[in-house]
């Protein structure tokens, strides 16, 4: 009998600290499955962010570095330049990547640095208690936008995929979601594709994963997934924004 489903080898048995209903766990699993499928566990180095995934290194059974807030693409650059044969990925949230780390992500992308970035967008700072993120939607209430994000005062959310896709450096940029099984499977494929691009030496790849934060959104996990689908996807459309090669149809 063939085993078709099991615990990914690239995850440690450690229980995650994430809140019930949080989608970080799903995304961790998708990354681990991609690493397993591609047989790159022994050569992969991850970079953990500052954010809810700050302890990501506890959950992946691969070498890891913990970066300062927003600096993961620079750290990834350093690692990749020392070990060009290693598969290097950073795992970053929206505050980390799209606010304090905008310089680092833009320039890593512009350099075409041969690394993979998994970007988790849940429109809120989870770790520090629900403050406004660069991706917080117009009108969305957070602890630092208590009357709703007022675009006339604080401006507009940043669409990271669209912005980075204007650069010539990136090889692959896709936005995916994990609000239902169908989309989770699609997200898994995108993550795998991003790693494949790196293995092939094509350059910078980034997958933005639309994600939920039931705790800071004040919603049940199910309602949070609904919000993702109904409010986030219209603002952050899914799809491939840049690919230097035809994406193989599966």
């Amino acid at each position: 009998m063939q085993k078709v489903f099991g615990y990914p080898r690239s995850l440690t048995p450690k229980r995650t600290h994430y809140c019930p209903g949080c989608t970080h766990g799903i995304i961790h699993r998708l990354i681990a499955e991609a690493i397993d499928d591609l047989g790159i566990q022994e050569q992969t180095v991850g970079i953990a962010p500052v954010g809810c995934a700050v302890l990501a290194y506890e959950y992946f059974d691969v070498d890891f570095q913990e970066a300062a807030h927003g600096r993961a693409p620079a750290v990834a650059t350093g690692i990749k330049r020392v070990h060009p044969e290693a598969i290097v990925f950073s795992y970053q949230g929206d505050g980390d990547l799209a606010s304090i780390g905008t310089a680092e992500i833009i320039h890593a992308a512009a350099r075409g640095e041969n690394i993979t970035v998994i970007f988790i967008n849940n429109t809120v700072y989870g770790m520090t208690g629900g403050q406004m993120a660069p991706t917080t939607l117009p009108g969305q209430k957070t602890t630092t936008s208590p009357y709703g994000r007022d675009i006339t005062k604080v401006g507009y959310p940043i669409r990271v995929c669209e912005m980075l896709a204007t650069l010539d450096g990136p090889a692959y940029i896709e936005r995916v979601s994990v609000h239902d099984p169908k989309h989770i499977i699609k997200a898994g494929r995108a993550i795998r594709k991003a790693f494949e691009m790196q293995i092939a030496g094509k350059g910078f790849s980034l997958v933005e994963v639309l994600s939920t934060c039931p705790t800071n959104w004040g919603l049940t996990p199910v309602k949070a997934l609904e919000r993702l689908k109904e409010e986030m996807i219209p603002y952050y459309p899914l799809g491939v924004f840049r690919s230097t090669e035809e994406v193989a149809k599966e």
Binding site: V45, I47, Q65, A67, A68, R71, A74, V75, A76, T77, G78, I79, K80, R81, V82, H83, A86, A103, E104, I106, H107
Partner: peptide, 16 residues
């Protein structure tokens, strides 16, 4: 792109 990035590249490279 900045001194901040440069030192973090050093962190990555040194750690590797």
């Amino acid at each position: 792109e900045s001194e901040v990035s440069a030192i973090n590249m050093v962190y990555g490279a040194g750690g590797a």
